[in-house]
Simulated scan of single mutants.
Amino acid sequence: MTYLKYKGYLGTIEPDIESGTLYGKLAFIRDLVTYEAVDLKALEHEFRASVDGYLEDCIALGKAPDTPCKGSFNVRVGHDLHMAASVVASRENISLNDLARRALSEYIMNHAGQ
């Protein structure tokens, strides 16, 4: 999927076949922020305006804006995989967090172009 990018936010691009318009929303945040337009150039403009408006609204409300992908997430892997990963991390003298980071990085490097 291709995303629009602005001020650290990512926005989706979706077509509405019936109306012939494009629409999207800010990705990877809990707050719902949407935008729409008739063509891609206008959609990007609306996306940027939506990000700016969202940030302004958060300031006005005294609310911290959601940020996409804060850098931590919980993963449920099951007992056996958790145990195996812990043993490997211990043997390598690294934290389980470092092992998971390395594994994710390697996977992404090997699959990013697909």
Score class of each variant (00 low, 15 high):
9 Y>D: 02
82 H>G: 00
68 P>N: 13
27 A>I: 08
104 L>F: 15
9 Y>E: 01
49 A>L: 15
58 C>K: 08
14 E>W: 04
9 Y>P: 04
64 A>T: 14
114 Q>T: 14
60 A>D: 09
8 G>M: 06
19 S>E: 10
11 G>W: 12
48 R>T: 02
26 L>D: 04
57 D>P: 00
49 A>E: 13
109 M>Q: 15
15 P>W: 10
68 P>E: 13
97 N>V: 09
1 M>Y: 09
6 Y>V: 05
50 S>L: 07
40 L>F: 15
5 K>T: 08
34 T>R: 11
45 H>D: 08
60 A>V: 05
16 D>M: 05
30 R>D: 14
99 L>Q: 01
10 L>A: 10
99 L>M: 05
112 A>G: 00
46 E>M: 11
99 L>E: 01
18 E>G: 07
6 Y>M: 03
64 A>K: 12
83 M>V: 15
1 M>N: 05
43 L>T: 12
47 F>A: 03
11 G>F: 11
87 V>F: 08
82 H>T: 02
103 A>I: 10
24 G>Q: 06
6 Y>E: 01
102 R>N: 12
79 H>W: 13
35 Y>P: 04
38 V>L: 06
34 T>S: 10
79 H>Q: 09
36 E>N: 09
21 T>V: 02
23 Y>D: 00
18 E>S: 07
18 E>L: 06
104 L>K: 11
22 L>I: 07
43 L>D: 04
13 I>R: 03
52 D>A: 04
48 R>A: 01
114 Q>V: 15
9 Y>K: 04
113 G>T: 13
71 G>K: 09
34 T>L: 01
26 L>I: 15
15 P>E: 11
85 A>M: 15
47 F>R: 03
54 Y>Q: 03
87 V>G: 00
55 L>I: 10
58 C>A: 13
13 I>A: 02
46 E>V: 05
49 A>P: 00
51 V>N: 02
69 C>Y: 13
78 G>Q: 08
49 A>D: 10
22 L>N: 01
101 R>I: 15
52 D>G: 03
90 S>H: 13
68 P>D: 11
76 R>K: 13
30 R>C: 08
47 F>H: 03
16 D>S: 09
39 D>C: 08
87 V>T: 11
91 R>D: 09
105 S>M: 06
100 A>H: 08
33 V>S: 01
35 Y>G: 01
56 E>F: 14
13 I>P: 04
74 N>M: 11
92 E>V: 02
43 L>M: 11
98 D>L: 14
50 S>D: 02
32 L>P: 00
46 E>N: 09
25 K>I: 01
111 H>C: 05
9 Y>R: 05
72 S>R: 15
93 N>M: 06
100 A>E: 01
11 G>P: 07
2 T>D: 07
4 L>F: 15
47 F>C: 04
65 P>A: 05
77 V>T: 11
95 S>R: 09
51 V>K: 03
70 K>G: 13
72 S>I: 14
